[in-house]
């Protein structure tokens, strides 16, 4: 690995840790100095997260139109093991995935067991921009009182997430990344309500 990537992935990990620790807050991956000498069918921010998280010890599944090309690239660069939705440690949902594909990715992901809740999937979802809809209200560990966020059109999927996370400590953890390299995380502990209604999600 290039020395610059050692520091870029260290920085990306710290932002991921901060994002996971303060759910709903957006952190920037700061990719000015980051150079990739290859092209990829998704954003540079997503590529950096993949580099940071995936190696030969874990499995992954890509969802989206260019999933095949992306899978080849990721396994070649990281030695990560391609897998299916129900067993993947990391599920990478590309921006061009259909609503149905995104929903399926959440529903089929693994939630771990009561004894090993860490054997669950982390979904890394790409968005164009987060937007300023500010429709979702978050509560839970890492949030002082509440946090209000936008999810770039993925808000409706949060009902499926709620379904998966019904039996805490089992559940899925999610990370969102936009084109500008902003990331936001929703660990399984975060409770989400839609602002416009009192329905918990």
């Amino acid at each position: 690995m290039k020395e610059s990537l050692v520091h870029e992935t260290a920085k990306a990990y710290r932002r991921l840790l901060l994002a996971g620790s303060y759910p709903g807050r957006r952190f920037n991956l700061d990719m000015e100095a980051l150079e990739f000498d290859f092209t990829m069918p998704f954003s540079r921010g997503l590529m950096l997260l993949i580099y940071t998280l995936i190696d030969a010890e874990v499995s992954f599944k890509v969802v989206g139109k260019s999933a095949q090309e992306a899978t080849r690239l990721i396994s070649r660069l990281t030695y990560g093991r391609p897998s299916d939705l129900s067993s993947a440690d990391f599920i990478i949902v590309l921006e061009d995935a259909t609503e149905a594909e995104k929903g399926e990715a959440i529903l089929k992901s693994k939630v771990g067991t009561l004894i090993d809740p860490h054997r669950s999937a982390t979904l890394v979802m790409a968005v164009g921009t987060f937007g300023e809809k500010n429709d979702l209200v978050l509560k839970g560990p890492g949030i002082r009182e509440k946090s209000v966020i936008s999810l770039g059109g993925l808000e409706a999927l949060m009902t499926l997430r709620e379904e998966k996370n019904r039996e805490y400590p089992m559940g899925i953890d999610m990370v969102f990344v936009d084109h500008a390299g902003e990331i936001l995380a929703l660990p399984r502990t975060t409770q989400i309500e839609r602002r416009s209604s009192s329905w918990p999600m």
């Binding site: 995936i54 874990v58 860490h118 669950s120 399984r188 502990t189």
Partner: peptide, 23 residues
């Protein structure tokens, strides 16, 4: 940098991220 090889760091980082997600 930081003594470890990158593979070791990744494994510890993944465990730490899970730890934060399941307090």
């Amino acid at each position: 940098f930081a003594f470890f090889d990158e593979g070791s760091k990744k494994e510890i980082r993944r465990a730490t991220l899970k730890a934060v997600a399941i307090p």
